[in-house]
Design a protein around this nucleic acid. Structure first.
Lengths: 157, 157
DNA sequence: ATGGATGCAAACTGTTTGCACTACT
DNA sequence: AGTAGTGCAAACAGTTTGCATCCAT
């Protein structure tokens, strides 16, 4: 993807946000667009602190409260996804931009003999999960809106 | 399952713990067995606070620190499993006894229009997940030790 | 007797909240 | 002008940690 396409994509994304804010009757604050831009420049997962520090470095004036608030909005708008990679409950949530990606799941690879230190996170997409989803919907009479699937393992030597 | 079988099961479980503690060179403290008994009397998911309050009510003298410590041991011994049902990161972890169960996954049903208030948690077991697991193992050259799969949805009306 | 395990309380961390101020609409 | 949204700091909740004491080995 070249630079022009990226710039173009950012505009699309901003339009999505603009539309969403309008539909919900929320305000068009500059902070929301700035945070969105930052997120869509990231290629990998990030957490709130990463994002906050990045923005401080770039001399943007945003508070963590606003980042948390904004992230809620982006989640609801479908612009980002939330993950909890570490099994440690007190570790922070991770996020990733989601608008241009298809839904995918994650393989968490731990370092060997390291008590759950994460070595790498690989994304994958197996269509069979759709079959399971439909089976569950039928079996229990529910409408499934989302799922999360994580595999945890270590590298074979 | 009748009462005799249950009592029998508890003895089996205690033996598993005894063996585990011995193998690891950990001590046979009464607290560990008491907490194990309490957990294995529970039919549903529980969190640390539930367990702590239950034990206080029954006049056992255990601290939360010990419960947290003990739960780590039980997890490692495979006697319990850990879950994070709520997508809210700051909500507590849930646990369940695991020794006699087969691995299963969870369907989290939210109350309609309730911003993620949980109505019910249903367990299911779809063998297709094994196929996905094996595909991932082969595709990425990893050994998968565990997985977690959650579906999130609402009841159909 | 020795040091692993416990109880207690204080510390910690990620997230949430209250409040005064700002700036969209 | 009115109020949603912001920044800041304090509060919060679940979990972890430090330390004195206890007890399994």
């Amino acid at each position: 993807m070249n630079t022009n396409q990226k710039e173009n994509n950012i505009e699309i994304i901003k339009d999505v946000l603009r539309q969403y804010l309008q539909d919900k009757g929320f305000r068009n604050t500059p902070e929301r667009y700035t945070i969105l831009e930052e997120i869509y420049q990231l290629e990998h997962h990030f957490n709130v602190d990463d994002l906050y520090l990045m923005m401080i470095q770039k001399k943007y004036h945003v508070s963590k409260a606003t980042i948390y608030n904004t992230i809620e909005i982006f989640l609801d708008a479908g612009l980002i996804r939330k993950h909890q990679f570490s099994e440690k409950i007190s570790s922070s949530a991770s996020y990733e931009k989601s608008y241009f990606d298809k839904q995918h799941d994650h393989l968490v690879i731990y370092k060997k003999d390291s008590d759950k230190e994460i070595e790498e996170i690989i994304e994958f997409c197996d269509p069979r999960i759709q079959g399971i989803k439909e089976a569950i919907e039928n079996a229990f009479g529910v409408q499934i809106d989302s799922h999360s699937l994580y595999f945890y393992g270590t590298r074979k030597n």
